[in-house]
Design a protein around this nucleic acid. Structure first.
Lengths: 327, 327
DNA sequence: GAGCATCCCGTGAACGTTCACGGGAGCGTT
DNA sequence: AACGCTCCCGTGAACGTTCACGGGATGCTC
């Protein structure tokens, strides 16, 4: 049972007291140069590393944020995470990342452990608010991309109605009238983006009657567009729930021999980097994904503020049309 | 100065002792059902959340790994990170992610703070070994994708000589003889992958005399291939340092009007998911990136083992040719 | 009714560090 | 020679939790 090397062990072999060791390691001053060196040598020799728990217990200065996302490999969440990491680093905070693999069960488990490991939690949750509220045990939380009632939560919401309206305007202006959508239904309900789309369509006297459902992946987009086009070969444009699905749609179009944008225009959502590496580059209703992550961290900071206690906020990030080559 | 709610506060308002509160919260047994409920209610009402520091100090069971990468947005590191997260979750470990933005300065700063925040560190480092060894203060470390001398480090190395040989064989078998490379030089020295390429070429009596240098991004690949092709328009195939650069090369070829694979074959390295979303899908010397992350976590666990003390290991992950559409 | 087991609950100690405070040695000033 | 200041170092206390142990009720057995 190799016991842990403590500050007292270092003190003993250096022939000084705990406090002197502490001073040497945190270079505090009030210590002679030679003794400091002696302490440092002793510490290295013993392989001493201070306990982060003991240290954290007494000085209450390290803050750690939990970032909960369904899938780090989904580029949207990668970009959000990158933004969060950057914002956290700027404040000297630490971020523990939890990937729930899109499973409610994993999300429950994550929440259970996250509560005792971080100071605040930030992320994209799928569970019902009541469940979140109950299991989070009062921990400060920032919800990303989601409406909410619970007053103690902050949230970063994505406002895309105007951007989707822009997209549909753009398509109509280019002569499109038979425009389909590749939606991503959560809990078998049409998404909010679908309603934005439907509203934008009806503003032009068009109906959103060609809607397919896709799972959240490139392959899902490929499948969904293939199906939709089989049912509705007359479509000349599609709007996808997000860029990942749209990139899949691009591939489907290629395989089906429909040239983009001439024979089929494709519009995504999110404005990911991913959209610039495909050919043609993807037109998208774009938002600043890094900023979403950064704002989430910032909100966490707001909720963590001791005094004055600041109330939660609901922030909006606007999405605007970014025309590239696929329309 | 709103003081923290402690276990004693809960005990007082519930009319019991600390220990009973502790029992209720960690449902330990040896407690009456009604008192347990009373304690739980009191805890919720006061908004009590146990201090992770105090808890961690006494039960030494939570382990946290630091994952250090140069750029989370680089899909290679995203995939490695995802693998690491998954492996860590399986063990109930926590992962703090640090993105050093590819800067040596940030890497130094990260190492400084990581030492006092995690139990072991895993990642892709750029600094010299001597510096790492000195500043890591004896912390268990696993180096990814890198050779090393320091005996106390573990490492996950990527063995691609055979895979690159396969790739060149494949290209030669398809009639290519003028094959270029888009390298990524670290500290203005040709990469190890370049030497693998040169060896494979000379095995066919060919010389690797058409080499461009690219920065680690899609745009970098585009630029580099454009330059290389301007110098050497006679090339019929290129091997890229990695998939990210190769995807950029694909885009350059498209813009220059060179059809892939008919007028120019392109081979990447890493076998990322990214290679399947582009058109044509990228042929690549592929490795299991998720596994790299998982192995790194596993090695961290090995180094963390108390008894018996296990020596560090150097693991190899082999890369093999994965033919898709770009050759 | 003595003995014993079971069920609950509480008290001291420990985890490893930093903070607040005190104090001795050395030197210069008056 | 008394005082004060600076420099360096050490001791008790505190941070908030769990662990080890002890002990009072209660009920059952014979």
């Amino acid at each position: 049972m190799s016991k842990r090397v403590t500050i007292n062990d270092v003190a003993r072999t250096a022939g000084v007291s705990r406090q002197t060791v502490s001073r040497a390691l945190n270079d505090k001053g009030e210590i002679d140069g030679s003794t400091k060196q002696r302490v440092l040598d002793a510490a290295r020799e013993l392989g001493y590393r201070p306990s982060r728990f003991a240290r954290g217990l007494v000085r209450q200065d390290t803050t750690t944020i939990g970032l909960v996302i369904p899938d780090l490999l989904n580029p949207f969440f990668t970009e959000v995470a990158a933004g969060a990491l950057e914002a956290a680093r700027a404040r000297g905070w630490h971020v523990i990342v939890y990937d729930t693999a899109g499973s409610d069960e994993e999300e429950r488990g994550t929440i259970e452990v996250v509560v005792s490991q971080v100071d605040a939690v930030v992320g994209y949750f799928n569970l019902a608010e009541s469940e979140l509220d109950a299991h989070l045990s009062g921990m400060p939380a920032v919800l990303i991309g989601r409406e909410h009632q619970t007053p103690r939560f902050s949230s970063i919401r994505i406002e895309g109605a105007a951007g989707v309206r822009e997209a549909v305007d753009h398509l109509v202006a280019n002569g499109h009238r038979r425009i389909g959508m590749l939606d991503y239904e959560e809990r078998s309900r049409p998404s909010i983006r679908h309603s934005w789309f439907a509203d934008a369509m009806s503003a032009h006297g068009l109906v959103a009657d060609a809607v397919g459902n896709a799972v959240q992946s490139v392959d899902g987009g490929t499948e969904a567009l293939t199906d939709l086009l089989a049912r509705r070969p007359d479509l000349t444009a599609v709007f996808a729930f997000n860029d990942v699905i749209a990139v899949g749609a691009l591939r489907a179009a290629r395989r089906l021999g429909r040239a983009v944008p001439d024979e089929l225009a494709v519009v995504g959502f999110d404005g990911l980097q991913l959209g610039t590496v495909v050919d043609p580059a993807l037109t998208s209703v774009a938002l600043d994904t890094r900023r979403v992550g950064a704002l989430a961290i910032e909100q966490a900071g707001r909720l963590l503020a001791r005094e004055p206690q600041l109330p939660p906020e609901e922030l909006l990030v606007n999405a605007v049309l970014l025309v590239r080559e696929s329309t």
